[in-house]
Amino acid sequence: MKPFEDALKNQPLGPMLSKAASVECISPVSPTAPDAKMLEELQAKTWYQGEMSRKEAEGLLEKDGDFLVRKSTTNPGSFVLTGMHNGQAKHLLLVDPEGTRSNSY
């Protein structure tokens, strides 16, 4: 199973943005700060890397299927799934189906 590739397949088709354009995008959601218990649980996961930039996250990925979850540096309080797909890093802002930042993982 390749969780990152499966997540990409489930994304709705829409306008594609280049990486350069998407860096400047700010999410319209109003995130709430994660609680201490949630952060403690996240820090115990091997896939969670804490707050880091897109560039730093991309530097940790080596091959297709590699992924990590990180705190966003451009959307405070939000989390991002960063993974390698077809030799290219992809970044997905994690939101729940109602369009708000997800506290679940």
Rank of each mutant, 00 (worst) to 15 (best):
Y105I: 09
D96R: 00
K71T: 14
K90H: 12
S102G: 06
L68S: 08
L13E: 00
P12C: 10
E98S: 11
N103L: 08
S78P: 00
A44H: 10
G50R: 00
E98G: 03
S53F: 10
N103Q: 10
N86M: 02
E41A: 07
A57D: 06
P31F: 08
R54T: 05
E40W: 11
P3Q: 02
K63V: 12
D6I: 02
S53A: 04
E40A: 09
K90I: 08
C25D: 09
D35V: 04
T74G: 02
S102C: 11
K2G: 02
E51G: 12
V69F: 07
S30W: 04
P12T: 08
L13S: 12
R54K: 07
L39K: 00
M52A: 07
N10S: 12
S30Y: 03
S104E: 15
E51W: 10
M16C: 13
G83Q: 03
R101P: 15
V69L: 01
S104R: 11
V69N: 01
D66T: 04
P34S: 13
V80G: 02
N75D: 15
N86G: 04
V23L: 14
S72H: 02
K71W: 13
A33R: 09
M1V: 09
D96K: 00
P15T: 00
A21P: 04
A7K: 03
K19V: 06
S78Q: 08
G77Q: 00
A20L: 11
G83W: 13
Y105T: 10
T73K: 01
C25T: 14
F79T: 08
R101K: 00
L81A: 14
V95G: 08
Q88L: 10
D66P: 01
S104A: 08
F79V: 07
S72W: 07
S102I: 09
S18W: 06
V80Y: 10
L60F: 03
G77Y: 06
I26K: 13
D6K: 12
L8F: 10
F79Q: 06
E56A: 07
T82H: 01
F67M: 03
K2R: 12
P3I: 00
K19P: 00
E62P: 01
T46M: 06
L13G: 12
S104P: 12
P97A: 09
D6G: 02
T46Q: 11
K63D: 12
F79S: 11
Q49K: 08
S27T: 00
Q43L: 04
A36Y: 13
E41N: 01
E98I: 08
G77P: 01
E51H: 06
L81Y: 11
L17C: 11
L8G: 03
M1P: 15
T73P: 01
E58L: 06
V23K: 15
S102A: 11
H91Y: 15
V80I: 13
I26C: 09
C25E: 14
L81T: 07
K71P: 13
T73N: 02
S30D: 13
Q49A: 08
P97K: 10
